[in-house]
Design a protein around this nucleic acid. Sequence first.
DNA 1: AGCTTTATTGACAAAAATGTCAATAAGAAA
DNA 2: TTTCTTATTGACATTTTTGTCAATAAAGCT
Lengths: 203, 203
Amino acid sequence: MSIRKTGKIRVRRAPEDARENILAAAERLLVVEGPLALKLAEVAAAAGVANASVLHHFGSIDGLHAALMERMVRQLIAEVLALADKGGPTRDDTQEAVFQALFDVFENRNAARLAAWLELTGEWRRMTHVREAVREVVARRASFGDVTPKQAEDLVLISVTLAMGAGLFGRALAELIGKPSGHAREVATEMLRVFHAAQCEKR
Amino acid sequence: MSIRKTGKIRVRRAPEDARENILAAAERLLVVEGPLALKLAEVAAAAGVANASVLHHFGSIDGLHAALMERMVRQLIAEVLALADKGGPTRDDTQEAVFQALFDVFENRNAARLAAWLELTGEWRRMTHVREAVREVVARRASFGDVTPKQAEDLVLISVTLAMGAGLFGRALAELIGKPSGHAREVATEMLRVFHAAQCEKR
DNA sequence: AGCTTTATTGACAAAAATGTCAATAAGAAA
DNA sequence: TTTCTTATTGACATTTTTGTCAATAAAGCT
């Protein structure tokens, strides 16, 4: 056993490492157990530290929530942009890559649950970098030139909306009608393809 | 003022009325303040009764939650089915009416927030009547005959997914790119129309 | 009227969650 | 080594939220 009764051993981390350790544990909790599991005691236990340590680094439970939101939003944005950059040679390939990136992030990484939580609590409006990131995505999309700028805006808007909806409700709804869990995503991407094609024609 | 100090006047309701009063207040709270506001004290205050009364009728705060979920899901299903029945003369009109019904319910009535809450807490799987209702919707849709049964299933799946996504995230995302709040819904319905048309062609 | 049932409630108890603080110890610097 | 900073922690205090209970009173019944 590695339990000591008398000799007191503590893991002492650099402040950033300590914060990272706690935030990673909190993120795991959020994704697996849902937002209700984000209690002080649960987060501390998951991170392997004392309650007081969490408060030391984040000030309060709300501070932890805010830090977690910020971290996850940053990861999310970075991931979408990175995946979008790895588009194929043609425009259609690139568009397809962006769609897949969106669904990967929102469905597989469970970012949709975070987004829903942010929307329900209404706390996300403070994060200005979200606004900037969205602007960047729209600008990139519009630069392709296969659709008008207005169409590009609509495409981004509807892609993200659909990816979030599918990421949050897709599995449950698919199960509900007896389809495999990935079915909602398939139909969603198909619909986006059709819509994009129609946009290109109508331009 | 209508405050009495000595004479004790109580409102005594029939059990169903009392439950209804409390549930209505709770629903108002959920929609306006979000799921975090569903505390015993807040619900009781909103309903104008004592905390103990809420517990008397629902046993516990979890009992209240469950009853609220059930009630809202029932209302939601009834509303969608009723609106879907009021379809226009042609098939396209009927389809359009169903789309509008979905978006009305999920966006305007804020049912999307409830759905998100149910998904995050994972409590909705117990409600079997949801499964039955979805089956009924699919059956109705398939009976139109303008698409194959498989396509009908996909259409229901994707319509609901999109309506929920738009209802929950639409306003925020539209604002984020500087569009009017109803824009997400417009684009969403347009995309559904395009997809439906493509389905009919491909049949 | 009196009697019965039970919805209602205030006061209180219990539990859960958050936050405080002084003491400790790990690591860096002197 | 000694000193200093501060991350860490257990014990405790505070706040919030939930749940209990006996007394009250509103409505139906005889």
